[in-house]
Design a protein around this nucleic acid. Sequence first.
DNA 1: GCTCTAGCTTTGTCGGACAAAGGGAACAGA
DNA 2: TCTGTTCCCTTTGTCCGACAAAGCTAGAGC
Lengths: 255, 255
Amino acid sequence: MPVAPLFRPIDVAPAYQKVADAIEREIVNGRIKPGDPIGTEHDLVRQFGVNRSTIREGIRVLEEGGLIRRDSSRRLHACLPRYSKLASRLSRALVLHEVTFRELYEASMTLEVASIEGAVERATEQNIAELTNNLARSEAVVGNPAMLAECDAEFHVLVAKASQNRVLQLAREPAAQLFYPTTEMIVTGVAEGGPRLVAAHRHLIDAIRRRDREAGVLWTRRHLQDWRRGFEKIASLDRSVEHMYMEHAQATRRR
Amino acid sequence: MPVAPLFRPIDVAPAYQKVADAIEREIVNGRIKPGDPIGTEHDLVRQFGVNRSTIREGIRVLEEGGLIRRDSSRRLHACLPRYSKLASRLSRALVLHEVTFRELYEASMTLEVASIEGAVERATEQNIAELTNNLARSEAVVGNPAMLAECDAEFHVLVAKASQNRVLQLAREPAAQLFYPTTEMIVTGVAEGGPRLVAAHRHLIDAIRRRDREAGVLWTRRHLQDWRRGFEKIASLDRSVEHMYMEHAQATRRR
DNA sequence: GCTCTAGCTTTGTCGGACAAAGGGAACAGA
DNA sequence: TCTGTTCCCTTTGTCCGACAAAGCTAGAGC
């Protein structure tokens, strides 16, 4: 006959983990708001009653999770996790899982089409202005593959933003980050790549402005199909997706 | 007149970050394969020539990123980041960004419909067997909201898995993790909730088995609409989404 | 009132230390 | 020979104390 449980399971976790959990709890439940300063390491030592080394290990956990950051003066404060940083973890995971081109392409098709549908429905004047501004910059750098690729990535982030759906925005980011480095290669390797890319963006903005869902979906599909054809042309190059990812990851970390 | 650049920017980063970067690089480019042991902390101290405290801070960064883990004996080894762990970071971020119900619902509709479409097209016998097994377990616990909610979450993970698209699998996970804790509340609060949920699962498996895309999409929509109606019924309860998330996060961390 | 410097604070890193837990090898018994 | 036990070594988690470099602050000097 089993006895009634008298005790709860003891929470056995390393001290640094408990420190991280405690601070996370305060941030997630809102007692510490984004932007609020966390104390200095010494403060935390006093509050938690553990050694500074232990505190520092806990801080690393939270920092990597994007919950806290150090500002210019290296003081700690809570912050809203940035999508692009979190997404880069996922992109890394996708590379490690060796996802196929089909998986990436199919998922992106779904996510980008959903983004444009949202954008067509809910884009604000502000959103459209940002997209238009992006288009102008793209036209100016159409001969520079690296800068054009960067503009393209930003364009699609702006479309997702215009959808007014942050869940979607976040869901599309990991796949988009894997797209980005290949765009440069495609624009470099395919003669008509640059102009076609800019033209597609123009049509997409136009569709959003006219609230023309059909056109938005159509041009998103074409845009992605262009990207696929370009990718298939250069797929025989010697650089692997892993290498592309590594370069991208290092570049973003430096920011 | 600007001089030609003689020097590259010096990479100024804390030592612990360099340690983490160096190990990450070896894992991502494949020189260290998932499962391979990383040395002991003392080994790393010798290899990198820094203090053990510094090594340990670097290890925390990688551990949080899911790139390395400690096995039962606490030895370090590389590993494939697990989707559910990474996704919980994103779920946390979504909570902090205070996403609305509309955003969550709309994105999930897109992602779950895409999952079922993939599953209908590509599910293997193995996938169908797993789904059938899940259904049987769901039927057995239809009166237990907590366990039924867990089965439901697993069911949709299995559908995504059956789509044979890991990018999609990963993209849907953050939103799904926010769904999960509410499912229990809905099944508890709505009388017909449990049976309707199980019935929907049965129809979904059937659609996958018959490769009937229309039916799959239809029942996914109905299933999600049921969830929404349930949510709207209980939305006046006193527990906020943040609380639901916190409880869920703690439960998963203990695993 | 403004600037500049000296001093205090904080971070990043180091060296060493110790208890607890795990793994492994030697040893005893079947 | 195989199995089970015990003791020792290793490894981890944590602590203590220390110091240089960089930031911040307050007071001196104008």
